[in-house]
Design a binder for these strands. Structure first.
Lengths: 109, 109
DNA sequence: CATGATACTGTGTTATACACAGTATGTCAA
DNA sequence: TTGACATACTGTGTATAACACAGTATCATG
């Protein structure tokens, strides 16, 4: 493992934590996996397919997301939206995040 | 798994990511495991022993930390400090972190 | 002297990210 | 029209890491 790879790993760990929050926050409007992937990367969060798709399924299993297959479009797509449960959790997560940010601000200064 | 537990899990994921950055930033001055544990929790970051100790060993293996046993004190303690490699990586991680924070700020607004 | 805080090691389990492979359709330019 | 590339998803295997849990032992203090 090279040094740059190793740094990349640690930096990755940092980014990893926010993926769930990012996904939940973006799914207030309906998205399918691939469009969400693009939406996130547009905003600066690069997520691998092999990470996002399993994550979506996991969050659905945990009840934070709902999904439907839409077959009427050109190409069949599985659309995800935040669920009622997810909507309850999201503001709590945002608060948690704000807390982390201000904590780290103090710690790093 | 109850709902509160489940929320706790997701919130935990969020916190998890910053632990490495927090640890590296705090180890500019020498600390032993337990004192670091207290130092972090004083600043609002609760980390489990079973998480912190393995993490310290891991970061040492990866070359970001150095450690020495100090036996001369009342009780033998393993002291950790950031290594030269760690000092190179830390500012890069801080930048990465700043990037994540501003990205999430946009995403959540 | 008992109790709780301190201080560490080690193991097993589970969850998770990610790599990798595979499938298939749409689009567009040469 | 065909080849390449983007789109869009599923599924499996593996390495890693957090965390629970257990165990050990010393120090401080009421």
């Amino acid at each position: 493992m090279t040094n740059t790879e190793s740094l990349e790993n640690v930096a990755q760990e940092l980014r990893r934590g926010v993926i769930v929050l990012a996904v939940l926050s973006q799914l207030s409007s309906e998205q399918y996996g691939y469009s969400l992937l693009k939406l996130l990367s547009d905003q600066g969060l690069e997520v691998d397919q092999g990470t996002l798709y399993p994550l979506l399924r996991r969050l659905e299993t945990q009840g934070y997301l709902q999904s439907v297959w839409k077959l009427e479009e050109a190409r069949p797509r599985r659309y995800y939206v935040i669920s009622a449960e997810g909507k309850k959790v999201l503001p709590k997560l945002k608060k948690e995040w704000a807390g982390i940010v201000s904590m780290m601000e103090k710690m790093l200064s």
